[in-house]
Design a protein around this nucleic acid. Sequence first.
DNA 1: ATAAGGGTTCCAGTCGCTGGAAGGTCAAGG
DNA 2: CCTTGACCTTCCAGCGACTGGAACCCTTAT
Lengths: 130, 130
Amino acid sequence: MNIGDAAKQSGLPAKTIRYYEDISLVVPARGDNGYRVYGPEDVHKLRFVQRARGLGFSVEDCRALLSLYEDENRASADVKAIAQERLAEIADKIAELKAFQKTLKHLVDHCHGDQRPNCPIIDGLAGPDH
Amino acid sequence: MNIGDAAKQSGLPAKTIRYYEDISLVVPARGDNGYRVYGPEDVHKLRFVQRARGLGFSVEDCRALLSLYEDENRASADVKAIAQERLAEIADKIAELKAFQKTLKHLVDHCHGDQRPNCPIIDGLAGPDH
DNA sequence: ATAAGGGTTCCAGTCGCTGGAAGGTCAAGG
DNA sequence: CCTTGACCTTCCAGCGACTGGAACCCTTAT
């Protein structure tokens, strides 16, 4: 199948699929006319990557996961390790965002939000010593 | 003061400060030797940007906030609007990450993490139909 | 024959820096 | 006066993960 159909079946834009070939993530065969030819196995991989990316795995994580996906003799421990690292990153990011949220919400709550220039948000950003 | 001191006082790397001049965010004067010269007001602005970035505001948000910071006749409502938009983005991002977390945690919890190839994480990424 | 709707390549841009190379300037010490 | 070392300058390239666009080729239907 051509790239357009692979795009439809994988849920990825054709541009992205070409990019994945560029970085040797999912490399299709080529037809006589030079067109990329995607077989069912390629489409599986593309969908796999699409899902993994959707869960926030980096492309490099996807590369590692794909090679485990293809490895009949993988140890599930290796997969779990990658997923757990990603879980830790997610937790860190959530904590960071919650801290932003708290600070910002505090500032917003104290701002009148009217036509006058006095603004606790600006003051807060300017720093404690202002 | 020179860029090195401005860096120390603002908490930003010199490289970043040069970049901020490049994009016309904080533009210092120049000495006869061609060195950037940062006055106290410039340093205030740099610290302001440093804090705003630290709260996750985009550089373009910072540009808008800076111009409000400098505007004696600003309406605090304008500042509040920017901050509230950012708060909404933060909330969205947290929700997204929590969804990732939930899915991934579910997969991880069901993975033995041993030397055998069977792996619910891989299966989950491969899709429901596999 | 032509037009539509695929496909191809390559280059540039996004965002917010960051690293490095090659060179100019300044203050202190010998 | 000269050198050393720390600072400063510019410019170019790269990160991640695409995305847009230009210019061109291929296929199919009318």
